[in-house]
């Protein structure tokens, strides 16, 4: 009996899981294989492309010795962390205001903020560059720290607003009766109850910061100020020659920190989404 249900479980769960994993992770397997091959083995049809025949670290060595990968990593990390923190701060304020407070224009604001989210960056980056130029922020971390939130705040506010709405009003009302101020309620009651929602918004923001390409390309201009996606593409694609091994090495290494964060927080991410989006 036990054996039977184990078998059934394996068939119904683990087999499809393996299929999904193969489908979703094959490109990363491929990138990994390429990153450990010497250049001469990457483009040849004589060898089985799915295995590493001659194992080498030279692509990683090139990445660390001939590019400023460490700086890129640091820039990306710093910008993503600060920009995410800034966005989450703003989004908590906006989300709470929209969820709980009535003020002039509050209805309109909710829609307005979501609509600005629809403006594609491909249109915005040139006018935005003018603002960055006017503020003298080119080639500084601030250029990205201050512009990324424009892509993050609308969605994060919306997510957090949904989450705050799930917290029973009664808790706050009784605290108000007890003489707490709104700010105190927000900090002492609402925020601790909203940790999963905040975490899921944080992860979301962090991911988008980590991935951003266009603004980072335009606003940064020296090799040591670039982010991982931009540095990788501009330093490892030389004219019509692509340094595939190192490109793939950089893509993989550049993904590690985000994947690492996800493996810790994915649980909260799910429960945060559960509460804010499923409501009703």
């Amino acid at each position: 009996m036990m054996v039977g249900s184990d078998k059934q479980k394996a068939l119904q769960i683990y087999v499809p899981l393996v299929v999904y994993t193969l489908l979703l992770l094959f490109p990363f397997y491929w990138m990994g294989v390429v990153s450990f091959k010497p250049t001469s083995d990457i483009f040849t049809l004589d060898l089985n492309p799915f295995w590493v025949q001659r194992f080498t670290f030279e692509n990683y060595q090139y990445l660390f010795e001939n590019t400023e990968f460490i700086s890129w990593m640091w820039n990306t990390m710093l910008i993503a962390v600060v920009s995410t923190a800034l966005s989450i701060f703003c989004s908590i304020c906006i989300g709470y205001a929209l969820a709980r407070l009535k003020f002039p224009g509050s209805d309109f604001m909710g829609i307005g903020i979501f609509l600005v989210y629809l403006v594609p960056p491909t249109l915005l980056f040139i006018p935005m560059a003018e603002v960055i130029g006017a503020l003298n922020l080119f080639n500084t971390h601030w250029a990205l720290i201050l512009t990324y939130p424009t892509q993050l705040i609308p969605f994060a506010s919306w997510l957090l607003m949904g989450y705050f709405l799930t917290i029973p009003k009664e808790i706050e009302e009784s605290a108000l009766m007890d003489g707490c101020s709104r700010i105190q309620i927000l900090i002492r009651i609402v925020l601790p109850l909203s940790v999963p929602g905040i975490l899921s918004a944080t992860i979301f923001c962090f991911t988008l910061c980590w991935n951003e390409f266009l603004y980072a390309l335009i606003f940064m201009s020296s090799g040591d100020m670039k982010t991982i996606p931009v540095g990788t593409v501009s330093d490892l694609i030389k004219a019509d020659t692509l340094f595939w091994g190192s490109l793939m090495a950089s893509a993989l290494l550049g993904s590690v920190p985000v994947a690492f964060i996800y493996s810790f927080f994915v649980k909260y991410y799910v429960s945060g989404l559960t509460a804010s989006a499923v409501k009703g």
Partner: peptide, 12 residues
């Protein structure tokens, strides 16, 4: 892209 942004917004 970079030239376009540079002409419109400076920085180059």
């Amino acid at each position: 892209t970079k030239i376009g942004a540079g002409i419109q917004a400076g920085g180059i």
